[in-house]
């Protein structure tokens, strides 16, 4: 087992975006989406990235999946530096790393049948996309076999997220990246999808990178977490530790801002959400 090699290694990744010019005289302003992020995800680990909108977590994720290029820095996946590799040399990555997205409405092509959606990665990668495999995948995510004949709009949000997961698993990846996979789901369905992801990660021995704005969900799913703020990682650690004793000022604010049932039932009010952990409201 080459378990010494980390599944994903991010080395000092920077990503700047030029914004549209606002003036003819001055140079185009630059957005520093990711500024110097480094992290290691071990094989088989469940790694969480948590942060609020605009913190750069989605950009980082795309860079890890080679869907975007860093301005500087490197991403090494299973020992291979994928930075600035041409698409034709990314085949191993396209097979081994798959994504599940946030929005169950926009993550499935509305004009394709579910079986074609699930088979897409197989077809693209030149594997035989047998009906057998599609049925197997549908079953693995808890959908009936006849779901393959239907179109995405005929499914509820939770079911669509299952289809999305089935598609991601089709090429038998070793790394699964989930970008806010339950944020758009109803509470009663969220638990089902979280369980499904958890089960599949266990059964298939996957490395999971789970991105969310919700630290309590990350804490439930992941072993380790990186907290992102303004393009940087401000804190990394075991999720339980980070949640219980956040070190960085931003993480402290984040943790105390999360409303939880238990805190509320033991008398926490909205002003307690604003109090930084440790100091009284």
């Amino acid at each position: 087992m080459p378990d010494q090699v980390p599944a994903i290694q991010v080395l000092d990744v920077v990503r700047d975006y030029p914004r549209p010019r606002t003036s003819l005289l001055r140079p185009a302003p630059v957005v520093h989406a990711v500024r110097g992020v480094s992290l290691d995800v071990k094989q088989g680990e469940r790694f969480g990235i948590v942060g609020e909108s605009g913190c750069g977590k989605s950009t980082l994720l795309r860079i890890i999946a080679a869907l975007d290029q860093p301005t500087s820095g490197h991403v090494v996946v299973e020992g291979t530096d994928i930075t600035r590799l041409p698409e034709r040399r990314l085949r191993f990555l396209r097979e081994n790393l798959q994504l599940v997205f946030q929005d169950p409405m926009s993550s499935l092509d509305p004009r394709m049948r579910v079986r074609d959606i699930i088979a897409e990665p197989l077809v693209v990668q030149g594997h035989p996309a047998s009906g057998e495999r599609v049925r197997e995948l549908l079953e693995a995510v808890g959908l009936s076999a006849d779901a393959g004949d239907r179109y995405p709009h005929q499914f509820s949000g939770g079911q669509r997220q299952r289809i999305s997961i089935a598609r991601a698993l089709a090429p038998r990846p070793r790394i699964l990246i989930a970008d806010e996979p339950v944020s758009a789901l109803d509470v009663s369905v969220r638990a089902q999808v979280l369980n499904l992801i958890s089960d599949l990660v266990d059964e298939l021995d996957l490395t999971l990178v789970f991105v969310s704005h919700d630290l309590s969900v990350v804490k439930h799913v992941c072993d380790r977490v990186a907290v992102m703020h303004a393009g940087q990682i401000v804190e990394t650690g075991y999720t339980g530790d980070v949640y219980a004793a956040p070190q960085h000022a931003y993480t402290q604010r984040l943790v105390s801002a999360i409303p939880t049932l238990q805190r509320a039932l033991s008398g926490a009010t909205t002003s307690d959400l604003l109090a930084t952990k440790g100091e009284p409201a």
């Binding site: 795309r62 999946a65 869907l67 698409e87 990314l90 085949r91 396209r94 097979e95 790393l97 798959q98 994504l99 997205f101 946030q102 929005d103 926009s106 993550s107 499935l108 092509d109 509305p110 004009r111 394709m112 959606i117 897409e120 990665p121 693209v124 990668q125 999305s164 598609r167 991601a168 090429p171």
Partner: peptide, 25 residues
């Protein structure tokens, strides 16, 4: 859309994406 992103993540090249996903939509 995320389905185009998913197609890219699966390794689809730009022109097949144009024909398979963009044009029908």
């Amino acid at each position: 859309t995320e389905y185009v992103l998913a197609a890219r993540a699966a390794g689809r090249q730009p022109w097949p994406i144009a024909v398979r996903h963009v044009l029908p939509n």
